[in-house]
Design a protein around this nucleic acid. Structure first.
Length: 135
DNA sequence: GCCAACGTTGGC
DNA sequence: GCCAACGTTGGC
């Protein structure tokens, strides 16, 4: 099983919205690196849900429930979506400053390339973030 | 609100 | 194929 991080501007699509929708298709990704990560996602994988903009924190988790398929919002076959399902809201969201403070997390795409909207997360990074969210 | 980082476009 | 110009994202 692999771990991922997906990013959303809360004014565009918030985690609260994700929770009330229960399930959604992750559309609108128009970046090849992000797209390639989406193509690697497998059913049952977990993704951290990050709020960019004013929030700047990891607020919870979603699960990949359907692997990539053509993005229905465009005719261009370059772009794909996956289906994600609401999984869990963190008791203590993990903010970007805390992430940057941790040496273990300093190699994360989130830290290295803040503009990448979908990225891979290593198991040790995922475990640490979950631990921070629970403490 | 500013600006750095990154991606894309288009002229040569 | 290079690179300048421009647009967008997102942290601060």
């Amino acid at each position: 099983m692999n771990y991922w991080l997906i990013k959303s501007e809360p004014h565009t699509y918030s985690f609260e919205q994700m929770k009330s929708d229960k399930k959604t298709l992750w559309d609108g990704v128009r970046n090849y690196q992000a797209r390639n990560f989406m193509k690697e996602m497998k059913k049952g994988d977990i993704a951290l849900f990050y709020h960019s903009g004013k929030d700047r924190q990891v607020v919870g988790e979603v699960e990949i429930v359907k692997e990539h398929y053509q993005d229905p919002t465009t005719e261009d076959s370059n772009w794909v979506v996956v289906d994600v399902k609401y999984k869990k809201t963190f008791e203590n969201p993990v903010n970007l400053a805390e992430i940057k403070d941790r040496k273990t997390l300093s190699e994360m795409h989130l830290v290295r390339n803040s503009r990448l909207s979908v990225s891979a997360v290593k198991k040790k990074e995922y475990d640490m973030i979950v631990k921070m969210a629970e403490s």
